[in-house]
């Protein structure tokens, strides 16, 4: 399947400061429809900061973040995170942030929050519409869990899941918001090779079956090289390279900055 070349996210000259420190320095990045893009770079290079900027947790100092949905362009700098999620971004977190004392299913059901609308009154009165909506939420969420392969632990507390399952549950929860772009922050961190391979399949499947574009921060180079169509390399907040896995592998800047010690991996 060849990704169509329509851009869904354009980031131009994004800059973010913390006090005097420039965490991201006029960074450009585009993502096309149904594309898997990776953002790599050494620790502290500004990858997670970049995520936080485009998902609205931080308000960038300057630059543009523009989403392009159904031919309509919209600048989303400084829009609140929940609205960005409503517009169709969904993310996971580097250090898993599940709702630990809620069940697996409930975690996914939270993802449906912004796609449903029953209010306090609806909850109390339980009119037809809200009952139906609740049913839809449950079924939708359950189906996602089935796809992800967590259908056997729907009623377990998220805290009690094994580590790899927690990572997958975060993805399931993000998918429940029906995004067109899924942002994964080190999804393979702490996974063993088996789990990583499964994760790679899952990510591919999400793109192929759901048609969701994916932006991925990852340190596992094997995974990155295997999955991504396009790689951006960031160091000290600046983009130092961009290209296909093959290009990145041989890019001298990248080797110098980052892959130097890992080229033989």
């Amino acid at each position: 399947m060849k990704p169509s070349k329509e851009k869904i996210l354009e980031v131009k000259k994004l800059t973010m400061d913390f006090g005097g420190l420039r965490a991201i320095d006029s960074f450009d990045l585009d993502i096309c429809d149904k594309e898997i893009v990776a953002l790599i770079g050494p620790n502290g290079a500004g990858k997670t900061t970049f995520f936080n900027c485009i998902t609205g947790i931080y308000k960038p100092a300057s630059g543009d973040i523009v989403i392009n949905k159904n031919g309509k362009k919209e600048r989303i700098n400084g829009v609140r995170p929940n609205l960005i999620t409503e517009k169709g971004f969904a993310r996971t977190f580097q250090n898993i942030r599940l709702f630990g004392n809620m069940t697996v299913l409930e975690n996914v059901m939270i993802g449906r929050h912004c796609r449903s609308k029953s209010s306090v009154a609806g909850a109390i009165l339980r009119n037809k519409a809200s009952i139906q909506e609740e049913k839809d939420i449950v079924n939708f969420s359950y189906n996602i869990l089935k796809k992800i392969g967590l259908q056997n632990s729907v009623n377990e507390l998220a805290n009690n899941l094994p580590y790899g399952d927690q990572r997958r549950l975060e993805i399931a929860r993000a998918l429940a918001t029906e995004p067109f772009l899924l942002l994964l922050d080190e999804p393979a961190a702490g996974m063993n090779p088996n789990e990583t391979a499964e994760l790679a399949d899952l990510i591919k499947r999400i793109r192929d079956e759901e048609g969701i574009s994916i932006l991925l921060i990852e340190h596992d180079m094997k995974l990155v090289m295997k999955l991504s169509e396009l790689i951006f390399v960031v160091d000290y907040g600046k983009k130092i390279a961009q290209g296909t896995p093959e290009e990145i592998k041989v890019n001298p800047n990248v080797i110098k900055a980052y892959l130097g010690e890992e080229t033989n991996a």
């Binding site: 998902t55 947790i57 609140r80 995170p81 929940n82 999620t85 409503e86 969904a90 993310r91 977190f93 942030r97 599940l98 709702f99 630990g100 004392n101 809620m102 409930e106 059901m109 939270i110 993802g111 929050h113 912004c114 796609r115 929860r173 993000a174 918001t177």
Partner: peptide, 17 residues
């Protein structure tokens, strides 16, 4: 559910819309 999610993790709560 949203209320409980708010207790569990505010940032994740917002990120979930």
């Amino acid at each position: 559910r949203a209320l409980v999610a708010l207790r569990e993790d505010e940032t994740a709560c917002q990120a979930m819309g």
